[in-house]
Amino acid sequence: MAPLHDLNERQRGVLFYIVDTYIQRGEAVASATIARESQLDVSSATIRNVMGDLESMGLLTQPHTSAGRVPTALGLRQWVDEIALKSHAAPISIGLAELSDESDLESNASRAGAILSQLTNFAGLVLGPQLSQVRLRDLKLVSISDHRILAILVTEEGRVIERMCHLDDPLDLLALNQMQNYLVEYVTGQTLDQMRLRIRDELKMARSAKRQFEESALRVGEQVASSNEETKLRVEGLTKFLDIAELTSDMDRLREVVRVVEERERLIEILDRIESAAGPSVAIGTELEESDWARDLGLVVCRFYQGPEPVGMIGVLGPMRMDYQRIIPLVERVAGVLNTARDDDSNQN
């Protein structure tokens, strides 16, 4: 890969003009077009030479013998890193007001995916939020039978999570209330993951160091904090792929893209590999996966948070030549609206 700082000003100008034009028009760009329409004060012959240099670096390719050039995934990556990820679009609020009034994060995130699909005309993706990463506010225990109790968890957003738990020995109402009060300390302000780790550490202590009641309570807490949930991936606007010319020109590949998206597992694996750093991330072409189905696709994603903890990811899957300068800040803005009580003010951008 040729780093951007290895490109001279003329090479950079030609590459970025071709990328911009390709994104807008979806067609190869000829040297005569650049000489005529760009602000580069050079001849067509000079531009052809520069285009040849960029092609030898792997940044441009020539789709047909007599055609102009289009950027490769590597060329788009150069442009995204230099221009798109560093640009700051005006605040975007169209279609987002309804999210601010929705108190349930899961419903909010699902709606946000649909809004992204509508605003971009591509597929909107929502990964999570995972229940195990949502912060909890309260716990209630309700007796169902001598050996069964219902644990009712309330998240900081007011969502209710119910877990059925087994009791080795029956408890009267007073003992059940004492168990509830004891476990509330492990619940308040914690995620299920944090609660599970703390209870596990407590149970590692010698049995003699714990009263039987405390150990019984911790065993119930262990059941409350257990998580066998599957990672949820929602895709909004799958039919938008039918409008992507790069895919509809090859129906076999279009079917493969749809199959991968519908099966979810491979797409979840791709999202799991995305860097965990705050802010938007972009994957282009085979950066998604070294497979033919990903060749002409691009992905823009951003994590969203509850407090300091990442609880999900939202983004857009579309053609490799999507308008990154518009879509990157849009995805970042939607993720910011989903954030709840971040320690910083990033969701106010």
Results as ranks from 00 to 15, higher is better:
residue 17 Y to N: 10
residue 128 G to C: 08
residue 41 D to V: 08
residue 349 N to C: 02
residue 109 A to W: 13
residue 64 H to D: 12
residue 293 W to S: 04
residue 179 M to E: 07
residue 221 G to C: 06
residue 202 E to H: 06
residue 6 D to G: 03
residue 180 Q to H: 02
residue 145 S to Q: 00
residue 31 S to G: 13
residue 40 L to N: 08
residue 293 W to A: 02
residue 141 L to D: 02
residue 120 T to I: 00
residue 286 T to C: 03
residue 254 L to T: 10
residue 117 S to L: 00
residue 96 L to V: 04
residue 198 R to M: 13
residue 333 R to M: 08
residue 15 L to S: 12
residue 107 S to M: 12
residue 128 G to K: 10
residue 21 T to Q: 15
residue 160 V to A: 09
residue 306 Q to A: 07
residue 27 E to K: 12
residue 333 R to T: 15
residue 32 A to G: 05
residue 294 A to Y: 03
residue 127 L to V: 07
residue 194 Q to T: 14
residue 74 L to W: 06
residue 198 R to E: 15
residue 274 I to L: 07
residue 240 K to R: 15
residue 171 L to M: 14
residue 146 D to Y: 01
residue 322 M to A: 01
residue 53 D to M: 09
residue 154 V to N: 02
residue 39 Q to I: 05
residue 24 Q to Y: 00
residue 47 I to T: 04
residue 182 Y to K: 11
residue 193 D to A: 08
residue 325 Q to H: 04
residue 265 E to A: 08
residue 19 V to D: 01
residue 119 L to V: 00
residue 16 F to W: 14
residue 5 H to Q: 13
residue 234 R to D: 15
residue 262 E to S: 11
residue 281 S to K: 15
residue 78 Q to Y: 03
residue 175 A to G: 02
residue 327 I to G: 10
residue 339 N to W: 06
residue 131 L to Y: 08
residue 277 A to K: 11
residue 112 A to G: 01
residue 138 D to H: 11
residue 116 L to E: 01
